[in-house]
Amino acid sequence: MLSIALPKGRLGDKVYKMMTSAGYECPDYADNDRKLIVESADGTMRYLLVKPSDVAVYVEHGVADVGIVGKDILMEDEPDVYELLDLGIGKCRMCVAAPVGYEDDQERTLRVATKYVNVAKKHFMEKNRDIEIIKLNGSIELGPILDLTDVIVDIVETGTTIKENNLEISEAFKDISARLIANKAGFKFKNEAITEMVNRLKEGMEE
């Protein structure tokens, strides 16, 4: 049986639609409010409905053979998995944003609010900029507003939240979208099933 880890929520629903048109349907998905596992009628596959940031964990540890996860999470956690396909949905950008009119003072340590600690570290290290990271788990925009930090590093989809909080994007440094990942051992032992899924999803995207 093929186990697929899906992120719960809006992205998961979009992905499930793609999976259905590729022929991977689980009728129970519709009433998935409480269910954590839904199985197909013929018992050949099942979906694990998990927190988006946990998808890669389930795949890396092999309880899910494949999973769909945002590139932002792959960049942050760097799991040891195969990244087989860019599904082209859930598109957004990884950005540095600052209050409108903010000017960077290179002589000071830059204070950065983010939930992507590793991504932010790596980005500013490449620019040789000394930073101090303050990790927040949500409402990152509050960082600069309350003068907790100078800037934020976060994913931006439409930019509305950024604008509403009187911030602006100072740098967009990576395109993010949903990716199909696979466990490295599972890819060997269930190669036929996984390759077929990749091909069917590809066909669906080309249409």
Binding site: E60, H61, G62, V63, N183, K184, A185, G186, K188, F189
Partner: peptide, 9 residues
């Protein structure tokens, strides 16, 4: 080397 049922090499 991989063994079926184990998640990594």
């Amino acid at each position: 080397g991989f063994i079926e049922g184990l998640p990594s090499n």
